Amino acid sequence: MAEHNDQGKRAEELAAEWLIQNGYELKAQNYRHSHAEVDLIMEHNQILVFVEVKFRSGTGFGYAEEFVDYTKKRLLIKAAEHYIYVIDWKKDIRFDIVGVYKDRSGKINFKHFEDAFY
């Protein structure tokens, strides 16, 4: 597996742990439907939260939220709609982005964008 794939997988694990520490419950990880995938599906305050995780080793090339384009959003929504149907979810939903940033000293920081789109 390529290094960037390893970093992305690790970022997803770190984001899940961080969200759990902040009161979220993990429902699914890397949920796939057709060509669409949701990194994390969490529940928080009776809201089903679909989370896209983006890793950045700095902000020189932009911030995490800038890398979720129209096509990616459509794919996330497609996978989310399928998951909602499968589990027969009747309550509110939300789409979030969690940026995982590694600074020069190696420290990991998080930036959470709640209700980022849709």
Rank of each mutant, 00 (worst) to 15 (best):
F110W: 11
G58W: 01
R94E: 11
V38C: 09
N45Y: 01
K111W: 02
A11W: 12
Y118H: 14
L19Q: 07
V98R: 02
H112P: 04
W18I: 00
F50D: 14
G23D: 06
Q29M: 13
V86R: 08
A15M: 09
Y70S: 12
Q21Y: 03
Y118Q: 15
K111F: 01
F67A: 06
E3R: 11
Y83M: 04
N45R: 12
I84V: 15
D88S: 15
G60Q: 06
F50K: 14
G23T: 02
I77S: 11
K111N: 11
L26P: 00
A116E: 09
E13Y: 05
V38W: 02
I97M: 08
W89G: 08
Y31M: 01
A15K: 15
H44Y: 14
F95E: 03
E13K: 14
S105N: 07
A116P: 08
D103K: 08
V100F: 10
N109W: 12
K78H: 06
E25Y: 04
I93W: 06
L75H: 06
E52Y: 08
D6C: 02
I41N: 06
L75V: 02
I87F: 01
Q21N: 15
H33T: 01
Q21D: 12
L76W: 03
G8H: 08
G99R: 15
A28D: 04
V86A: 09
A116R: 12
Q7V: 04
R10H: 11
A11R: 13
F61M: 10
L40Q: 03
F50Q: 13
H82T: 04
H33S: 07
E114R: 15
F110E: 01
F110S: 03
A2V: 06
F117H: 04
K72C: 02
I108P: 10
L76N: 10
E65N: 13
I108W: 09
F110I: 03
Y70P: 00
A64L: 10
D103L: 12
Y101G: 10
E65Q: 09
F117Q: 07
I108T: 14
D69T: 07
S105W: 00
Y101Q: 07
A15E: 03
Y101M: 03
K102C: 10
V49H: 11
A36I: 04
V68N: 04
Q7Y: 11
M42Y: 01
H33E: 07
K72Y: 05
H4R: 11
F117R: 03
I20W: 05
K91W: 06
D103Y: 02
M1D: 06
E17K: 13
I77M: 14
R10Q: 12
I84C: 05
I108D: 05
K9N: 03
I41R: 08
F55P: 01
K54Y: 08
R10W: 13
K27M: 05
H4T: 11
Q21E: 15
Q46I: 03
I93S: 07
Y31H: 13
D103S: 09
A28S: 08
Y85D: 05
E13C: 00
W18D: 10
D115Y: 15
Y83D: 02
F55R: 01
E66D: 06
E3S: 13
Y24S: 05
F50R: 12
L76G: 12
D103R: 08
W89E: 08
D92A: 14
V51R: 07
A36F: 06
A80W: 00
